[in-house]
Write a protein that binds this DNA or RNA. Structure first.
Lengths: 337, 337
DNA sequence: AAACGAATCTGGAACGTTCCAGATTCGGGT
DNA sequence: ACCCGAATCTGGAACGTTCCAGATTCGTTT
């Protein structure tokens, strides 16, 4: 360590001084800090991690950088982590299981102190293996993926219920649902829709159309892509509903479009509610009423769970948060006949 | 190393075997790999980095995770990096200079072999300091920020020219420009607009309105936020243009909105061109004609420059790529009077 | 003046890997 | 039987830090 030489002290003392240990005299400390500054010295996380056994690094594994849903969760993770002195590193897996596993591996090899997985993609066994080495928290998956893995999720059934009740309170009865692929989240939303319709005595009006064949292991949410979504939206509108609850904002956008083309634009022609409250909801016209997951809070909570694990907790925890409905311009009372 | 014990060999041989060195007999190699597998062993990047002096890690510093412009560049960086066996780590600075500097520091302390900065935010002196330790490439900034830092940018003037020429070829003459804040990119686009108008003999029709006061160090692109953008768009439309070239897609969206409200919706009432070809361009109605930066290529190029530096290049390089115009539904010939 | 204790500093071990120089084994040519 | 070289394997040094046990200094108490 050349800083030690420059300041004329031992490397041990440099280490102490830079960490602000109070057992170093003020004069010496100043001399050391000055030398470090002059030499542009930065401590080496690698070496420190090696000897200390922990790195104060938190890894975040993402499937999809471009997904604004994910990025806000990341912000929550970051805020909470930084408050506790951790540094957050992101690894980007893309929509590719093998890559995802590789990136997770890379994080583990860096000896991160914990991993937050913002994605429902990784395979359970990969997660379980990771969880054997460091705490792992998964955000956004409604069921528990693997033993040893904590989860934070939003309550999809409650979100669906809020959407349907909002429409019912506006006076709608013929409320249809545009379902998603068979992934867990969309399944739960559909179940919530059906249940609420039943509870409101509207079971007779229950109408569902979905994109994709419902294959659980489809390549993407909305297998078949935009075309399939548009077709399903058109079909659904053909059944003559006065309101549609869509499984996500993209699906809601498809409904908005088809409704516009069919000459009954929202909200007068048909009311539309989306899910996830992505930036889309703000940019689309009319602005979209959408169910909002408390993403920032979910991220913070994930970090909290991670730190609890580091603190010694051993039993698994699964947190479920209730989403809020954000009412915008795409919903209104039904047009009187 | 317990794998060594389990396989009954020295730690050195384990190291060789795991790296696939051919000087290890097939039988022993199999025994070692088997033991490693059984024990769930992963090599420690920290220790390796310490002794080798390089980590095969590439750091990417981002200002804004939620910005789809940035994320596609990141994909390009990743693709190219992985082809060469590097692992990419992302650090997220947010729109905060201090945080950005801290995150950059964190990357450097991890001994990454190079850094790609996808942002025009970091202060030159911070970049210069980083560049003294490892290669640094900056993506998306039109001018060179600091000596020792390579850059990759799109040619904003050429992009503006393509947009204006497209409108002129459709038959427009009264082509106005909705300018951005005074950041370098928007200044270059405005300059390109003015120049092309002159070259086409349309100088007399040059009309510019901008958001924000033009303060270069504004807090954000579009200081004053959406409100200011809307107001500027309304003012611009009041001057009676038949076409508008907007400095980015968000600004274009504002024009689209105001035009709709003013009873002359695009493309019949007024033609609109945006810049950046964000996902907005695809979701908005009518779909937006927009100038597209070759983001994937820019990312790949950035990685290439980084590796060239690692290979020993010493002189700075500044690559400028020409953007493409993507024509969609928001532009059409002017309505005959 | 001796003894003590607090304050300040130091030297080497340790972390998990790679690298290097060399040790051991083995088959084959003389 | 002997030697040689190739193939295979080993032990310790090194990387840059922290940690620990102890060394040194110095003011204070007895």
């Amino acid at each position: 360590m050349d800083v030690a030489a420059a300041a004329g002290v031992s490397k041990s003392l440099v280490s102490l001084a830079l960490r602000g240990d109070h057992g170093v005299s003020a004069a010496t400390s100043a001399r050391i800090l000055d030398a470090a500054e002059r030499l542009g010295y930065r401590s080496n996380t690698l070496a420190r991690g090696l000897v200390q056994g922990r790195t104060m690094l938190l890894g975040v594994l993402l499937t999809d950088l471009a997904n604004p849903y994910h990025t806000e969760v990341v912000s929550g993770v970051e805020e909470a982590a930084e408050e506790r002195g951790f540094t957050v590193l992101l690894a980007h897996g893309r929509r590719d299981r093998a890559r995802l596993a590789r990136q997770l591996d890379a994080l583990l090899q860096l000896n991160v102190d914990g991993v937050v997985v913002v994605s429902s993609w990784p395979e359970p066994q990969v997660l379980a293996a990771a969880a054997r080495r460091v705490p792992v928290v998964m955000v956004g998956r409604p069921e528990t993926p693997a033993p040893g893995v904590d989860t934070v999720a939003n309550d999809d059934r409650a979100g669906a219920e809020a959407a349907v009740r909002h429409l019912a309170e506006l006076g709608h009865e013929r409320i249809a649902h545009l379902a998603g692929s068979g992934r867990p989240a969309s399944r739960a939303r559909e179940a919530g829709y059906r249940e609420t319709m039943r509870n409101l005595g509207l079971a007779a009006h229950t109408t569902v159309r979905g994109v994709g064949g419902g294959s659980d292991h489809g390549t993407d949410s909305g297998t078949g892509g935009a075309g399939s979504r548009e077709r399903a939206a058109a079909e659904l509108l053909a059944t003559g509903p006065t309101a549609v609850f869509a499984t996500n904002d993209l699906a809601a956008l498809a409904v908005l479009d088809r409704a516009h083309e069919a000459g009954r634009p929202a909200p007068g022609g048909v009311s539309v509610v989306g899910y996830d409250n992505t930036s889309l909801a703000e940019t689309v016209r009319p602005r979209l009423t959408s169910v909002d997951q408390p993403r920032l809070v979910m991220g913070r909570l994930a970090t909290g769970l991670l730190l609890e694990r580091l603190g010694g907790r051993v039993e698994d925890r699964h947190e479920v948060l209730t989403p809020d409905l954000v009412v915008r311009a795409s919903t209104a009372p039904p047009r009187p006949r």
